[in-house]
Design a binder for these strands. Structure first.
Length: 270
DNA sequence: CTCGCCACCTGGGGGC
DNA sequence: TGCCCCCAGGTGGCGA
């Protein structure tokens, strides 16, 4: 799915095309994704101008002045700009139409979310519980070090806990730990401040490189302009079980942690 | 608070 | 060809 970089690339793609435009129609084709679609409330957007698009973690927040449309892409969601007249296909659940252009949400696995937030988005229960933004200035080695005292879970799963730090999914957790030279199985509490001084920049570099590459985490990820794309970002370890490590030439290994696949190089990551 | 596990859903791929 | 099982992905919610 869309991890933070893919959501951010989506946000950037939509922002250019939609901010300042007014909604002319709303189409809900699915009664419910993760939550029921608030179709009655959404129809009140007709005639309203989109003032801005923000991101918090993997959530997108569309500011309409009278409230915010909150979208989450789940595991398989994508948002694209299409001609308003183009026929919807299977799994196209929701359209926000801006004249001749429609922003279309497609989500085959339907883990995504569409919600209407009347009040301050930061106070919404889904947003209020979120952890630090990994690209923000307050995400520092000492902050992460302090927050992980007493956490005996493996660092890989800890990085994926959105209540601690947002936006890092299964792919970029493995990639960040490779860059930092840390074994994904290491308990978070057992990692020294010195090593967090390496991990925090590694997370930033991983996410920023992916944003620069235009989003990459799903084979079927489609950028908001509809182009197929990701400049084939090269993963260091993700999905490369049995292949040679790009750094040391050793063999990339995989294991399961909390029901998900992790990838690492035993020689580079201790 | 932390942890481990389940549920949610669908399409694609491999094995037989 | 068809069937079955497993897997991918994010996150809320549960009980321990």
């Amino acid at each position: 799915m869309p991890e933070l970089p893919e959501v951010e690339v989506t946000r950037l793609g939509l922002e250019t095309g939609l901010v300042g435009a007014a909604v002319t129609a709303v189409t809900c084709r699915t009664p419910s994704l993760r939550y029921p679609l608030p179709s009655r409330l959404l129809h009140r957007l007709v005639g309203r101008r989109l003032l801005g698009i923000n991101r918090r973690g993997k959530y997108l927040l569309f500011d309409f002045g009278i409230g915010h449309l909150l979208l989450h892409l789940g595991m398989s969601g994508s948002l694209r700009l299409v001609p308003a007249a183009s026929p919807a296909q299977r799994h196209d659940h929701f359209d926000l139409v801006f004249g001749r252009i429609a922003m279309r949400l497609r989500d085959p696995r339907r883990f995504g979310a569409v919600l209407w937030l009347q009040d301050n988005p930061a106070r919404h229960p889904l947003i209020a519980v979120l952890g630090d933004e990994p690209l923000a200035d307050d995400f520092t080695p000492s902050w992460l070090y302090q927050k992980t005292r007493g956490r005996r879970a493996p660092i890989k799963q800890t990085l994926m806990d959105s209540h601690l730090v947002v936006g890092i999914g299964n792919i970029y957790a493995s990639e960040s730990l490779f860059r930092a030279g840390i074994d994904p199985r290491k308990p978070a509490a057992g990692i020294s401040l010195t090593r967090y001084r390496r991990l925090v920049p590694a997370i930033r570099e991983t996410l920023e490189a992916a944003i620069a590459a235009g989003g990459s985490s799903l084979r079927d990820f489609v950028r908001s302009d509809g182009s197929s794309g990701y400049f084939q970002q090269q993963y260091f370890v993700y999905g490369r079980t049995g292949e040679p490590c790009h750094h040391c030439g050793g063999t990339v290994k995989s294991l399961r942690q909390g029901g998900r696949a992790s990838f690492y190089c035993p020689r580079c990551q201790k």
